[in-house]
Amino acid sequence: MIETILQISLLLLAIAMIGLIYRLIKGPTVPDRVVALDAMGVNLVSMTAVLSMLLDTSNYLDIILLIGILAFIGTVAFAKFLEKGEVIEYDRDQ
């Protein structure tokens, strides 16, 4: 029973991923695409969790934390680039 549930939820997550890819391609502005990429990172974490249950191994649980941290850092870097034009700025210039 639990295996069927896992496959169904993996299918739902894959449909959600396709919808986010549509917004990533079509999105009229750059922040739209960044929002779609951030949600794709979160979805990828869910897919990794479901896949680790489906394959019945606990070795993938590190990857969940790693993808979460990388997606957050990427989103923050993109937001700062969109707002100020550079990611790492020097104090001396101000």
Binding site: S9, A16, A39, S46, V50
Partner: peptide, 13 residues
Amino acid sequence: GAFLSLVAAFGVI
């Protein structure tokens, strides 16, 4: 969880 992720994707579309 899967349903909420799907709802998020529909909202983004």
